[in-house]
Amino acid sequence: MGATSWGFKKSLWVFHLNAGACNACDIEVLDCLCPRFDIERFGMKLVGSVKHADVLLVSGFVSRKVLPQVIETYEQAPKPVAVVALGSCGCTGGIFRDGYNFAGPVDKLIPVDAYIPGCPPRPEAIIDGIVKLMGKL
């Protein structure tokens, strides 16, 4: 076991980046923290800066204005960092893929490790996705 996989084995700290989501995914992410789903039992928590994070959770179709900031955030993250595309918009662009302000989806811009589809994905799906990601790392 190398140092990297040892570091990923226990508590994953998650930085949540909203790249143009409609709030539904973001609220389901916060829902995971609250007493019913309690994602902290897996050692996960949301952190305020990407420099502290192991996982970068990107929700939303990527708009043109937010595009440089998404790439900058990814570059600022300490490597290795696992990237998760959240929701239909994050995975494919969803209903907004024909829009003129669409610059994504996320995997066109930065390498993505896991996709959690759904509009919005249920908290169970988010927990399931991230726990599966823990097994993969």
Partner: peptide
């Protein structure tokens, strides 16, 4: 940052 061009869509 979240402008999605909804009216045109």
């Amino acid at each position: 940052r979240i402008h999605r061009g909804m009216e045109l869509l």
